[in-house]
């Protein structure tokens, strides 16, 4: 599949944004973190900024963005529509939570309820995003049991590492949150390795024989219907060389998992403000690493249409 940057950035940014929003909702709602004005302003600003930037970026690949409002109508059947509805609805409690925190300086009572509802909305939205990909049968690498949990784990992982960077910046860092970040990053690493292992060994029942209805033997593409690349090949015939894929997997592991783990371990030992500096670097490295991971998620996904073109 063609890794369009707008969609790669969209899933990475909203994943981190919803993860951060969910944590702010829970930690704020249960009064675990103080209703500090600047913490709320920067924290919610960052979370909602990432979400909004991601959603805007995703409309960038639409052919007719001015009709995007129509996408809220088919939530009964379409995961993409459900994602649109969930993302917009989540802005309501998130906005109320932000107003309560920033303008009224409180995160208890009705503000706490808004925060917890924002958390629920964030989780639901990430699930709907994951299901868009997990429900596509023609792409075996996405239509697997690894996809939906992957979206949730990576959202929790990037969100918590961002949350840690934020709290460390306000000298509010806690060992418990650091430990949670480490655990989630290790879980994300393990999940990504397991996903790659599963995809590399994938034996797909669909092949050139079933695609053409020609039973038995071998079916070799002799001639394409056209001499130049068409929409199908540009959009779904994207191929990546095995050596580039291996190198990009290494870069993903380094930036998204290994480096953040090392930096977070260092944050345990270092005093403020050094702990804050390494925490921020960990979050930035992980975001960059997840952009590479998401690029690979597309580039390594093979659509059944490629069978017709013998590639």
């Amino acid at each position: 599949m063609h890794p369009a940057f707008s969609v790669v950035f969209f899933t990475t940014a909203t994943g981190a944004g919803y993860g951060l929003l969910a944590l702010l909702g829970v930690l704020g709602g249960f009064q675990i973190i103080p209703p500090d004005l600047w913490l709320g302003f920067i924290g919610l600003g960052l979370a909602l900024g990432l979400i909004a930037a991601g959603l805007l970026s995703s409309t960038g690949h639409l052919g007719r963005p001015e009709r995007a409002w129509r996408a809220f109508s088919q939530w009964r059947s379409s995961w993409l529509s459900r994602e649109g509805v969930a993302s917009v609805i989540t802005f309501i409690p998130a906005g109320l939570f932000g107003i309560g925190w920033i303008f009224f300086g409180r995160t208890n009572g009705w503000v706490a309820i808004a925060g917890l509802l924002a958390t629920c909305g964030a989780v639901v939205t990430v699930c709907t995003t994951g299901m868009i990909y997990a429900s596509l049968k023609p792409i075996a690498q996405w239509h697997s049991r690894f996809t939906l949990p992957g979206y949730l784990i990576f959202s929790a992982m990037t969100g918590s590492v961002l949350m840690n960077a934020l709290l460390q910046g306000f000298a509010l860092g806690s060992k418990v949150l650091l430990a949670a970040c480490l655990l989630l990053t290790m879980l994300g690493w393990g999940w990504k390795l397991a996903t790659w292992r599963y995809n590399d060994r994938l034996e797909i029942a669909t092949n050139a024989n079933t695609a053409t209805g020609l039973a038995g033997g071998t079916v070799r593409s002799l001639e394409w219907p056209h001499t130049e690349e068409n929409y199908l090949l540009k959009e779904m015939g994207f191929r990546i060389a095995r050596k580039h894929s291996a190198r990009l997997r290494e870069i993903t592991q380094l930036l998204a998992f290994a480096l953040p783990v090392l930096l977070l371990v260092a944050a345990f030992a270092l005093p403020w403000p050094f702990a804050a500096v390494v925490s921020v670097i960990a979050a930035m490295a992980q975001f960059a690493g997840m952009l590479v991971e998401r690029w690979l998620f597309f580039a390594e996904a093979k659509h059944t249409i490629t069978l017709y073109y013998g590639c």
Binding site: R64, R67, L80, L136, I139, E235, M236, H303, I305
Partner: peptide
């Protein structure tokens, strides 16, 4: 008149039956 050009339908079709008009 209702299509927003999100291209998801072309991803969902295993047969490559849908083509986007850029």
């Amino acid at each position: 008149d209702k299509c927003i050009g999100c291209k998801l339908c072309s991803w969902a079709c295993p047969y490559g039956a849908r083509e986007f008009d850029t």
